[in-house]
Amino acid sequence: MSVLGHYNYWVTVFLMTAGLYIVIARGNLVKKLIGLSIFQTSVYLLYVAPGKVIGGTAPIIAPGYTLYSNPLPHVLILTAIVVGVATLALGLALAVRIHEQYGSIEEDEILAADREAEERA
């Protein structure tokens, strides 16, 4: 229960917070996406770090090793990574389209453009 015994979680927490901060505080769409992917990356550590066993080795069965790390988190995170990159790709595609339509990828500029358009309409 010591604080030090949980340092792997602190890293996760830090990354997560930083990622989230970028997402919320930054107006640039691409930047938001990068923040989002950092946010997602933090989850990898949350899952994988506890899967490590001291003295264990990678979960590829080979003669001479008896203690392996937990493979299940790895599998889950593989999937999570894929999901992350899929989201990133889609988000970027959207950002590109937005740029084509609005000529900007700054959130406030876009919103201003929308307001303007609405007023004109």
Binding site: V23, L29, L36, Q40, T87, I98, Q101
Partner: peptide, 14 residues
């Protein structure tokens, strides 16, 4: 629609 989708993407992913 694009912006709406983007916002949804961000929030949905979070």
């Amino acid at each position: 629609a694009l912006l709406a989708s983007f916002q949804y993407l961000i929030l949905g992913t979070i």
